[in-house]
Simulated assay, not measured.
Amino acid sequence: MKQPVLETETSTETTDSESVAEDSIVHEQAAQPSWRRWVPRAAVGAIAVVGVSASVVAGILGWKMHDRDAVDVAARQAATTAQNYAITLTSIDSQHIEQNFAAVLSGATGEFKDTYTQSSNQLKTLLVQNNAVSKGKVVGSSIKSATKDRVEVMLFVDQEVTNSVSPDPRIDRSRMVMTMERVGDSWLASKVELV
């Protein structure tokens, strides 16, 4: 008869030890500092903030690179147009003066177009009277400044000139800064300065 009691006592002791172990686990969890519970949440929040920040930075850098590419394309287009226009501007034949002046005016805009138009009649008369012929050649160029809609180009131009006073060709070397502006889909000269 004592055995069943012993078994019961043993059984109670086992139950008590399990209960003590469970209490100790609960007590340990409660005893853990509160920061251990919010650390995983904070880590997730930090990762999200870093992810969003990285996306914003990538977007800004991508936009700046796209903008820089657009400026580079504009500079190349404007420089090519300026070189061709410099040849048009410095190549004149008194026998074809009207066509020469029309070509110059079609590539001009703004201040330069106004100035050239105002002086064209006097210049035409002078060129025809002297039987002038000139042929321009661009020997070098560089971009001075550039945006998507305005580019300054430095040009080095050799101009072979003959006229009734000097029938033997002579070379005039000049340096000019040509300001090109985007007008619709075209690049036009808005300012030409000899430097």
Rank of each mutant, 00 (worst) to 15 (best):
P169L: 07
K137C: 05
V139K: 08
Y116I: 15
A146R: 07
T117Y: 02
V133Y: 06
I143P: 10
P167N: 05
Q129E: 15
T125C: 10
S145F: 03
T125R: 14
I143L: 12
S164K: 08
N163C: 07
R170H: 03
G110T: 07
D158P: 08
A108R: 00
R170F: 02
L127I: 15
E111C: 09
N130W: 03
S141K: 04
L105S: 12
R150I: 06
K137P: 04
A132C: 11
S166Q: 11
R170S: 08
T115Q: 14
V165Q: 11
V161D: 01
S164F: 02
Q118H: 13
Q122L: 13
L105Q: 13
G107E: 03
R170W: 00
A102L: 07
V128Q: 11
M154G: 06
R150G: 01
V151E: 03
A146V: 06
S164I: 09
Q129N: 13
R150S: 12
K137F: 06
S120Y: 08
K113G: 04
T162S: 07
N131Y: 09
Q118Y: 05
I143D: 07
K124A: 10
V104F: 03
L123E: 14
S166E: 08
K137W: 01
L127V: 15
V133P: 00
N121Q: 14
E152C: 04
V104W: 01
V133F: 09
F112C: 09
T125I: 13
A103Q: 07
V157L: 02
D158F: 06
V157P: 10
M154T: 06
A108F: 02
V165F: 10
F156Q: 05
V138G: 06
F156P: 00
V157N: 00
S120D: 06
S145H: 02
Y116W: 14
F156Y: 13
